[in-house]
């Protein structure tokens, strides 16, 4: 089953500021994209737009599988994982409670859960309250979501930043497995991911485009 995602001339605004103007991008199964660019250029905003958290000012984001166009709501709720800066862990609950909740909420099966715990070596963390975890451990726990509920498109915002060298290798292996299974990764990064990726460098639109966008 192949998946492809097309960004057709999209413009994104944050507040009244135009961040991205007329961006075209096409990704297919097995592709990995590194989004690079200055801080504040709109990498996170672009990831969130692809995740369907808001619709672009102009242009269209569409996804296709073997049967043709995927309904946007189905695309958002069945195909996408979004890993943001925050790890979505409630400080007073244990790692196991949080992972079990995510598994149930995303309707994952038990096997995947066990596999994720084993793969990321989470069993020593399971009974700890998440406020006791270090930043790297938290990130590892949130990576588990990617394995618990298999989804085709991974949107990762600085996935490697809190991880140490060993864990980076682990995360890189996880991502490469996903790509070889025909998945797609779009990651906002400062340092390139440790494997072959296509680099998309984002820059600010010029003043003219900025001013023109003010009147819409």
């Amino acid at each position: 089953m192949s998946l492809s995602v097309t960004l057709d001339k999209i413009s994104l605004k944050k507040g009244y500021n135009l961040l991205i103007s007329n961006l075209n991008l096409e990704v297919g199964s097995g592709d990995a994209i590194s989004l690079t660019g200055q801080n504040g250029v709109g990498k996170t905003t672009l990831l969130r737009a692809i995740a369907g958290f808001f619709s672009p000012q102009t242009g269209k984001i569409s996804a296709f599988d073997d049967h043709g166009l995927i309904d946007p709501i189905r695309f958002r709720t069945e195909f996408i994982h979004y890993l943001g800066h925050h790890d979505a862990l409630s400080p007073t609950r244990t790692t196991e409670q949080e992972l079990r909740f995510q598994a149930q909420y995303l309707n994952a099966n038990e096997n995947n859960y066990q596999f994720a715990v084993q793969y990321l070596n989470l069993s020593p963390l399971l009974d700890l309250e998440t406020r006791l975890l270090s930043a790297g451990q938290k990130r590892r726990v949130s990576l588990a979501r990617l394995l618990i509920a298999p989804r085709r498109l991974w949107l990762l915002d600085e996935p490697m930043s809190p991880l140490d060298a060993h864990q980076r290798d682990l995360a890189a292996r996880l991502m490469q497995d996903h790509l070889s299974d025909g998945g797609i990764i779009i990651a906002a990064v400062h340092d390139p991911l440790p494997f072959e990726t296509r680099i998309v460098h984002l820059t600010r639109p010029d003043l003219k485009a900025q001013e023109a966008a003010l009147v819409d």
Binding site: A51, G52, F53, R76, T77, I80, H81, Y82, G84, H85, H86, D87, A88, L89, S90, Q102, Y105, L106, N107, R145
Partner: peptide
């Protein structure tokens, strides 16, 4: 915590 991002990607 960013939990809403997970919730929105659910059913």
């Amino acid at each position: 915590d960013g939990l809403f991002d997970i919730l929105r990607l659910g059913p």
